[in-house]
Amino acid sequence: MSSIANWSYTAKAIIWRNLGKDEYGDPLGYSAPEVIMCDYEGGLSKRIGSLGAEIVVKNTVWTEFSLANSGDYLLIGESTDADPVAAGADEVRQVIRYADTFERVADDFAILTGV
């Protein structure tokens, strides 16, 4: 962890990584919950307009955790629940990578969740 991330990523979140699908297209489930160090910002969860509901960003989580992907589930805080939906986690919609501009030790990531 870079020295800058060491003082900025002080919150904990839990991520359940999507294990993919089997040869029949059925989901294989999710990994055991993993604790990641992060910082975060909340946002809106749904926008309703004249044409229906639109999915929008619910939370943005900044971290050096590099293994997050769309389809994973993330919960700000801590949980040991094996089921991310039962734990109240939100689905990861997008992951954006940013360079470690100052130290070049570990890149930073913005994990965007939606409902």
Rank of each mutant, 00 (worst) to 15 (best):
A13Q: 05
P33K: 03
D72C: 11
V85S: 06
G43Y: 04
G43D: 02
G25W: 01
N6G: 07
N18T: 05
V57F: 00
A68I: 02
I14T: 15
E64F: 03
W16R: 08
S8N: 10
A53Q: 10
G20N: 10
V35F: 06
G25S: 06
K12R: 13
S45G: 12
P84S: 10
Q94E: 15
L74K: 05
N6V: 01
S31D: 06
I36E: 08
E54N: 11
W62Y: 12
L28R: 08
W7R: 15
A106Y: 08
L74N: 02
G114H: 07
D22R: 07
K58V: 04
A99E: 14
S8F: 12
V57R: 10
Y98C: 10
Q94C: 07
L67Q: 12
S70E: 13
G49E: 13
V85W: 04
A89H: 07
W7Q: 13
A68Y: 04
V115E: 11
K12L: 08
L112N: 09
S79R: 09
I15F: 08
I15A: 10
E34G: 00
R104C: 00
E78P: 02
L75C: 08
I36R: 11
I14G: 00
I4G: 07
S8W: 10
D26P: 06
P33M: 04
A99W: 04
G29S: 12
L75R: 10
M37T: 04
I111C: 09
S45T: 12
G42E: 15
L75M: 14
A82Q: 14
F109Q: 02
R97P: 05
S3N: 14
D100W: 01
S45E: 11
S2W: 01
N59G: 01
G49R: 14
Y24M: 12
V92N: 11
D72P: 12
K21L: 12
D90K: 08
G43S: 14
G88C: 09
Y40A: 12
P33Q: 02
A99M: 10
N18E: 11
T80I: 15
Y40T: 01
G29E: 03
N18M: 10
S50F: 07
I14E: 07
G43W: 01
L28F: 01
T101R: 15
A13H: 06
D107Y: 02
L75Q: 03
N69G: 11
E23L: 08
W16G: 09
N69F: 08
L67G: 00
L19D: 01
S70L: 00
T10W: 05
S66E: 03
G88E: 02
L67P: 00
G29N: 09
Q94L: 15
K12G: 04
L112A: 05
S45R: 11
N6A: 12
I55E: 13
A82K: 15
S31G: 06
I111A: 09
R104I: 02
A53I: 05
M37G: 12
G25Q: 01
